[in-house]
Amino acid sequence: SPISFNETELYLEVYVNEPAECKWSRTDTSFDNMEHSMSCSTNLWEMNNRNVYTCTTTLTGIEDRKTNSYYFRCKDQPNEVEGNRNVNTQSYLYNIVGTQPLNILEVGPNETIRGSTDTIHIDLSVKTDNGYKNGEAICYYSETGNEEDYIEFLETGGNEHSQRQDLVTGSYTYYFKCVDLGGNAAYDSTEFNVETDRQGPVAVRVYKEGGELKIITNEEAECSYSNKDCNFEIDEGIQMSTYDNEAHTSEW
């Protein structure tokens, strides 16, 4: 069972099928040699709804980044003389995995996203690492950052997480929270813009310069040309060169 980074103690409940005296140790030893006694319910009215008795303790000395082993043994009939009591001859082993901090390595999007429809499809994305099992976690998103507002990602549970959103034009901030099986949590956020562009680019200037055809557009665009037809798809034409997506050149 994993535990959060920097947690050195763990409250634990153990259930037994009859009144008993229970102990634990960091080594697999006999009941009498175990150093730590547990607090056990032994009265009939103290059974829980599963008809078992509860023993409680606080396990100490948990170390990060390693498996911590604890051994348990019990002896029944606490009110009987020693000769009538039965004791476990084998220990019950319980392992606690000390973890490391969970980290968020990447979040997205973090740029301006453009489209030609009223609502534009974007993907929120988070990449996690470390923590328990190399970043395996459940991630959540929120538009406020308030704990009660976080919603679980549609695709999550590994170390790469994504959530589709369909957004209108505007500026957006999303907050992320990821939690692994050990209870380690990591937080981050991203900001981006969504722009709807329903009009195509306009060639504001066309001229020859230095033996090249040069076209200037009124916005960032992709340009191509054809020597065969005026009616062609842009990806069917000959691609023009550009360094800023506004000035486009080709051979004259």
Rank of each mutant, 00 (worst) to 15 (best):
N68E: 08
P78M: 02
C74F: 07
V97T: 09
Q90W: 06
E80C: 05
V87F: 13
R85M: 05
Y92N: 09
Y70H: 06
E82A: 07
N95G: 06
Y94P: 00
N84P: 00
N68K: 10
N84Q: 10
N95R: 14
N79H: 09
Y71C: 08
N79V: 06
K75V: 03
Y92L: 12
E82Y: 12
I96Y: 08
P78H: 02
V97D: 03
I96R: 09
Y71L: 09
N68I: 04
F72T: 01
N84K: 11
E82P: 00
Y92D: 06
Y71R: 10
R65N: 15
N84M: 07
L93E: 14
K75W: 01
N79C: 01
Q77L: 14
S91Y: 03
N86C: 09
G83A: 07
Q77S: 14
T67D: 12
R65W: 02
V97H: 09
F72M: 02
R73Y: 00
T67Q: 13
E63C: 03
Y70D: 12
N68H: 08
N88V: 02
D76Y: 00
Y92A: 13
D76M: 01
N68S: 08
E80D: 15
K66R: 12
N84G: 04
K66N: 08
I96E: 05
I96G: 05
I96S: 10
Q77N: 13
V97K: 12
N79Q: 09
N88Y: 04
E80P: 00
N79F: 05
P78N: 02
E63S: 07
E63Y: 00
E82K: 14
N68M: 06
N68V: 03
Q90A: 07
N68T: 08
N79W: 07
N95I: 06
S69R: 14
D76A: 08
V87G: 08
T67R: 15
N86G: 15
I96M: 07
N86P: 01
Y94T: 03
V97L: 12
Y71W: 11
F72D: 00
R65T: 10
S69H: 13
V81C: 04
G83K: 12
E82T: 10
Y71S: 06
N95S: 14
V97Q: 09
